[in-house]
Structure formats: C-alpha cells, structure tokens
Write a protein that binds this DNA or RNA. Structure first.
Lengths: 333, 333
DNA sequence: CTGAAAGCGCTAACAG
DNA sequence: CTGTTAGCGCTTTCAG
C-alpha cells in the first residue's frame, strides 16, 4: 500500500507538506499543492484512517445504533444519516441490535466504546439505565432520533400533537365512533412512541367529549401483517367504529386490507388515517400525517457534525415538522 | 481516555502483557490475566481501534456496499452480515450508494479505499468497469451477494433455476396462459437478476411449448406499487393470463392487489407466484420461492471472515438454496 | 511556504 | 511468563 512517504518522495517534498496539501490546509503554494495532488492521484494514494485517526483523535466515523434495519422508519433515517455523512467524508458504522436484542450487550459494551466513532446517533431505542449511562459517558456527542429518551438529547416529531391532529381530523369529518390501532411495546424499541400516540388519541377524543371504547382500542406491532390482524378482530365486533386512527401507516394499510377482506368499504363505511407517509401510503390512498424520516436522519447527522466541528451543542430536543396529507381513505361521515 | 499504559501502570505490569492478556493470547499467567482484566474493566478501558489498526494492519471492520437499505433484500442481507460480524467483534461500515447513485463516485474513490475495511461485501450491484476494477484492486477479500457480476466472486441463488421452477409450478398446475411481471433495469441495481428471471420464465415456457405473449410480459420496479400498476395494465387486456409469475414477492403482492381491485379472484381466476418469501408473503397467502436473504448475508460475512483468518479463498461462486412454498395464491386450472 | 522531529496508542518481535 | 524496544502512517508543533 502506498503511504504518505511514497507520495512525499515521488513529489520531492516532505510528508508534512503532502499532508497539508492533501487536506487542503493553507500554507502550501499552489504549485506544490498541484504536484502533490497529481502524484497522490497517480499513485492511488489514500490516507490510512487508522493512522490519521491515531494522530488526530478523530475517526471520521459516526456510530448509528438501530433496533433493526427492515422497518421503514429506521432504514429511511439511516439513509438520511448516511447521505449527510458521506457528503463530508464521514463513514457510517452500523450497530444493529437485532429485534431480539441479543447483540445489545456486545454493542454497548464493546464496539461503540471501541473508540471507533466520533459521535453516536441512536434510533428510537429503549435503553436500559446502564446503556443510557454508557452512552452518556462516552464523552462524545450523542443524539436519539425518534421517541424521547430520558436523559438523552433527542430529535423527532411531536408524537402527541401528531396523534391528536390525526384524531381531530377524523372528528372534524364528523366521526364519533373512532377506534385506535396502537403499537404494543416491542422489545428494544421505544415504548414512549406508541404510548404518546395513544395518549394523543385519547386527549383528542376527550376534548371532543367522545367516548373511548376499550373494544375499539387494539395493540399490535408496527407492521402491515399485525395491523391487518388486529383490525380484523376489531372490525368483526358490533358495533364497529366508523373511523380508525392507526399509530403507523403500516398498521393503517393492514386495516385497509382487513376492511377489504370483510367487505367494508373504505372510506364509505370506514375512514382510516395513519402516521408516516410510508412509500406504500399513496398506493393505498391512505390519508396520513407525513413525517420526513430521511430529513430527520440528515438533521441528526448535521447536528452531530456541527458539534464535532465545535458548534455549541444545540440544547434540548428538536421538533421536526409534520404535515397532514389527505388521500382517499378518509371521508366525511 | 484511559490508555493501555494506564492499565499497565495500575496493574503493575508492562503494556505488552496488558495487550496479551486483554486479547486472550497465550503466555500470560492466569493470575496476571485476571488482574489485568479486572483493572481494565474497572478503568473502563477500551482499546483504540485506530491504534491497534495501525499496529496490526487490521481494521476489524467490513465494508458493505448497498444500493439502498429500504428494500427487503438489501436490508435483510445487511442484517445477516451485521449479525455475523458482530459476533466476532467486527464492525459493519455501511456504504449506501443511494438509488440515484450520486454518491457512488465518492464511495468508490474515497471511502472504501480509505483503508478502513479489511474486506468488502457488495450487494447485488451493477458496477461500472472502473468500479469493478477498483474493487478488484483493493487487495482485500471481496464478494458480491445477489446477482452475478463479471469478474467478481459472487454468492446468491440460481436465478435462472428459481424462475424456471416458479414458472414450471404454474405449468404443472395446468396453466397455459402465463404472464410475467419482470423487473426493469433500475439504475445501480444489478441488471442481470431481472434478466435471468425473465430468461428462466421463457425457458420454462419454451420447454412446455407454451407461447410467450409480449402483451403478457411487463416490466416494473421491484416494488408493490410498481407491481400493482403494471399488473393493472396487463390484467385489463383481453384475453388475460390465468397465471402470473412475478419476479419478486413485492411485485406479486402488487399483482394480487391489482386483481382484487379488478374483481379478479385469486387464485380462482388468477394464480400468482413470486420469489423471495418476503415478510408480507404469508399475509397475502402468496405462493413463492423462498430465498434466505439473512442467511446469505451471514454466509457472505463468514466467507470473508474465514478468508481474513487465512483460509484459502473459496473459489468460484456460491449457490444458495431456495424452496418452493405453496400458499393460497396458486391453484390448478 | 516548507521540513524535521516528536508523538498518537497499540502490537510484535526479541530478549530475558 | 514478562518486559523492552521498535515501529505502524499520519499529524502537528516548532524552526527555518
């Protein structure tokens, strides 16, 4: 492998100059810089990240902790993060905890702390106190994207408000019998997200003096399959709600599928609203509250990068905007 | 940050001994090892990956190049890779090219070559000659998971055989009017996968002396939305096929949705078969040829790891097994 | 504007 | 079994 010395020798300057020239630092004459750049290119030289990492104390890598990478939200945030990092030459180191969470200890105790990353972004996880502490004591910038986590800075949408807006939309359409398809607590994910969405629903219902019927509240996983299953159960009961607020688009799509199977017309007999604006939402004509997962990833990365660059840490938690998108799954009662 | 010297000093031995003890190397007395382990733990010591990387020439990180992380196949293979790597303390460095491919140059020219990884796994990509060359000249183990790529070792299912099996299954059920929902060439993905699946279909049809009607062959993206759209178009034509082989489960699910919308009974009036065994396949009762993406990821990682450990490179390309799973979307004609 | 030299923290012979 | 001693390849003062 060609090293900085090779480049120095080949271009007739010192390694210090090569280093400066290649990194675009000042105090290098244009001529010299050009020569160095050219020979580096010619020799196919690439700096060793280990060596420069050792010398600078910077790894130029960001750790991203995810519960999994197969759900829309996580994969999309991850793509946002990576695109932002890539742009400035930072690498993304993935720490996939796995839904089962078996790898958690390994991740928290060894790898992240392996001083491999300059900062860490965690997606919507539910940390144990010890994990939280480990993260906090890492000594480098950290942020959680998604649900709020006690003791850690976070960035995300206003879960409560979003759920409320969704429910209020149904109410405004004249619905009074409104059910909720909520998220159950899944291991390793953030409990607070489904909780707050449910709470937002309840608040909106209470504010409109509408009864929340226990048999119209169901919990499942944030997936199409689970949404369908749970909706099937709820929609078979009599009386059934005329509208459904699902805690995620995937669940909402599941509900639409369930309704179709039961011969219930959407939105004629049942209005459905979700949260996310999942790529499939349009296909199903789903009305939803859109959240920009990719953008949230970009922003989180940006924040970490700025902080690493010396900006004072943005205190407190960031709120990311959302938008109601009306499609054909909701209609006036 | 506490360094190896701190641990050495605190436990009253040399740094060399600490290094040996911590890495589980021989030639350390049990007593010494225990002391060192204890003080390291107490001090919260974690070796600097930059330093050890520089000293050993090993980064303990694997590069994974993906076109995106939102499609089932990629995210699942990625999870497989990460789980295998995590187990042995290797890190996953993600290189997301982005569907648009704008980041490609950056990735290929800078980051991967940034000597940050010990090996590279690329998922089903379509490389330019120059990229292929860069990969090959990296000097470290490389493998492609998914479609075959000229000049690079690869691991994946037998695309041709799978497509053939799927088509033959429909033929065996008595279908003669069989359409194909194929994948179009999407930028940055591997062209050869949809091509081979189509070819397998054509071969199976030819072998059964069945006509392949151009109006029963459509191409789209490997997504539910696209599958639905394309199927809608095909199924509206008269005469329409009695069975459909879709190049992926997502397309197949799209076709099922399209059929439902058109009031065409599946499998009564239309049989549908896909490839993948996507998590949603069961929900839609989709008959499919299952491929184990997670397992392919694990295997690819294992191969790279073995090679890094000194095993002679497994020559040639690996074939991963598949299995026909019959559900309720196909029936005899 | 450029070069010399001292590390960054760890590993790997080589002695002992 | 353990310690000493060179580096690994780069960055960064500090001189010049």
């Amino acid at each position: 492998m060609t090293s900085i010395d090779d480049v120095a020798r080949a271009s007739g300057v010192s390694t210090a100059t090569v280093s400066r020239a290649l990194r675009g630092l000042p105090n290098v004459s244009p001529a010299t810089r050009e020569t160095v750049l050219a020979t580096a290119e010619e020799l196919g030289y690439v700096a060793s990240s280990s060596a420069s990492g050792l010398a600078t104390g910077r790894t130029l890598a960001m750790g991203v902790v995810v519960p999994n990478v197969s759900r829309w939200f996580y994969s999309t945030v991850l793509e946002g993060i990576d695109s932002e990092l890539r742009r400035v030459g930072y690498d993304t180191i993935l720490f996939n905890l796995g839904l089962k969470g078996e790898d958690r200890e390994r991740v928290f105790h060894r790898s992240i702390l392996r001083k491999r990353t300059d900062a860490v972004i965690a997606l919507c996880l539910d940390f144990t106190p010890s994990e939280r502490e480990q993260l906090a004591s890492l000594g480098h910038p950290t942020i959680v994207v998604g649900g709020p986590v006690t003791g850690l800075r976070h960035l995300g949408i206003d879960e409560l408000a979003v759920a409320r807006t969704a429910t209020e939309h149904l109410i405004a359409l004249g619905h009074r019998a409104i059910g909720h398809l909520g998220g159950a607590t899944e291991h390793g994910l953030n409990k607070r997200v489904p909780e707050r969405r449910r709470r937002g629903y309840e608040l909106a219902m209470a504010a409109a003096r509408l009864a929340v019927r226990p048999e119209w509240e169901e919990s499942g996983e944030f997936t199409i399959a689970s949404g369908r299953e749970v909706a099937l159960r709820m929609l078979r009961r009599t009386p059934r709600p005329t509208a459904l607020f699902a805690a995620s688009d995937e669940m909402a799509i599941g509900a639409i599928l369930a309704a179709r199977e039961l011969g219930i017309d959407v939105p004629g007999e049942l209005s459905v609203i979700g949260i996310d604006d999942h790529p499939l939402a349009a296909t199903f004509g789903l009305t939803t509250i859109a959240q920009d997962a990719f953008g949230q990833g970009c922003l989180a990365a940006r924040l970490m990068l700025d902080e690493l660059a010396g900006s004072p840490p943005h205190a407190g938690s960031g709120r990311y905007p959302t938008a109601l998108i009306e499609r054909s799954s909701t209609s006036a009662r």
